[in-house]
């Protein structure tokens, strides 16, 4: 008798699970999967998504980085290197200015400690996330744009 009972229990328990599968098969409400390369245009990422590090530039090609190296010190892996230069101001004083903001993308852990450390709010984590390149050297990026200057209020 126990033999047939075992068969009954096994079959009924499996049918119980199959019931759920069948219900989902017949009552699909919406597609849960996304077709990724095709949905690029409609893809919405959350505003805080940490994709890549950028130096914020205004329309006049001005950034807010004073070259203080706070982000360089805050970075756990030495991903950021600030190269600064001396620049003559109008009244003849020599001042430190940003020459190149070098960010090694391949080494970044996206912890956003640099964004947190920046005293002038110059950095931002942006949403871009497709960075496949053919050479590692291409992931060494200069974040300040060509010909960009410090904003007037921080000079």
């Amino acid at each position: 008798m126990g033999y047939f009972k075992d068969i009954y229990v096994a079959v009924s328990s499996m049918l119980e699970g199959m019931k759920l599968t069948g219900r989902n098969f017949l009552h699909f409400r919406k597609y849960l999967t996304q077709e990724y390369p095709e949905n690029r245009d409609s893809l919405v990422l959350s505003p805080r998504f940490k994709g890549e590090l950028i130096l914020k530039h205004t329309l006049e090609n001005e950034h807010r980085c004073t070259g203080c190296s706070a982000c360089e010190l805050a970075c756990p892996n030495g991903t950021i290197r600030i190269i600064s230069k001396r620049e003559e101001t109008a009244d003849g004083k020599s001042k430190k200015r940003l020459d190149a903001f070098v960010w090694q993308h391949a080494m970044c852990t996206f912890c956003a400690l640099c964004v947190d450390a920046c005293p002038t709010d110059a950095l931002k984590m942006d949403q871009a996330f497709e960075f496949a390149v053919t050479d590692r050297a291409m992931l060494m990026k200069k974040l300040n744009k060509e010909g960009s200057n410090l904003v007037e209020e921080l000079k």
Partner: peptide, 15 residues
């Protein structure tokens, strides 16, 4: 993970 992404910006390694 979507909620985490909205809060922290990451889905796995939060910090």
């Amino acid at each position: 993970t979507d909620i985490f992404e909205e809060v922290c910006g990451s889905r796995l390694t939060m910090n």
